[in-house]
Design a protein around this nucleic acid. Structure first.
Length: 228
DNA sequence: TGGTGATCATAC
DNA sequence: GTATGATCACCA
């Protein structure tokens, strides 16, 4: 998919972004794609980021592939939530790369998970395989910040992970670990390497990994917002 | 069938 | 390789 010039200006306030989000609710992906003349892929197999990028354009996200929030001027990160037929999160949510080096003494408040999740626009999108991509509908998005309880849950997992990593135990970490946060590979393929800490404190080449939110956590966020 | 490990596209 | 955006694919 080729990048196009922005057709929507960046939102100048949370309120403006919220208005745009509400206007998207109920629209189909083909409606949005047609407006900006984007072809609709048969499926997402070779276009895994297509839905997210489509919505970025329509909401005026501006950060591109910079390490900045999608809406940098108002400090908001956009995350789509693919939904099952039962309106549960279908996939985990990627947060950020796991720091495998120079992480001694890194505090929760200085880590990428804390910063990425401090202010998030969650945008649910139908994602059942039985619905053709173009017919999938956008849901009611909302802007969120973690509660102190949610923060504590994530912090607990994060600290457990970072202790293992700083001790050179990154290879022992599997996606089974962590209550609400998990660590999984984040790379083009399993042969990609980055530098991390080995068992003896020496540097060691290892697979790049990312922090992901479990679906149980995003489902909790959805339920919290949509109850009432 | 859900969750883990692997993977896909693209810009730089 | 690292950043962005994520979903795929297979096995328990």
């Amino acid at each position: 998919m080729t990048k196009k010039m922005p057709i929507v200006t960046k939102p100048e306030s949370e309120h403006e972004l919220e208005s745009r989000v509400l206007a998207l609710a109920g629209q189909t992906l083909s409606q949005l794609a047609d407006k900006i003349h984007w072809p609709i892929p048969e499926n997402l197999k070779h276009d895994k980021g297509w839905v997210g990028q489509l919505l970025e354009v329509h909401l005026g996200a501006s950060a591109g592939n910079l390490s900045e929030p999608d809406f940098q001027n108002i400090g908001i990160e956009l995350k789509t939530i693919p939904l099952t037929a039962k309106h549960k999160a279908k996939e985990t949510t990627y947060v950020c790369a796991v720091p495998l080096l120079n992480n001694i003494g890194l505090s929760w408040e200085d880590c990428c998970v804390y910063h990425k999740l401090s202010r998030v626009l969650w945008l649910p999108v139908e994602a059942e395989a039985t619905i053709p991509l173009g017919k999938r509908r956008i849901g009611r998005g909302f802007i969120w910040s973690p509660s102190t309880e949610e923060m504590d849950l994530l912090k607990t997992d994060w600290e457990e992970f970072m202790e293992l990593i700083s001790l050179g135990q990154v290879e022992t970490i599997t996606a089974h670990l962590g209550e609400y946060l998990q660590i999984r590979p984040k790379a083009a393929n399993a042969s990609v390497v980055t530098t991390g800490i080995g068992l003896n404190g020496m540097r060691k080449q290892t697979l790049p990994r990312g922090f992901y939110l479990r679906t149980s956590f995003t489902n909790h966020i959805l339920e919290s917002f949509f109850k009432n």
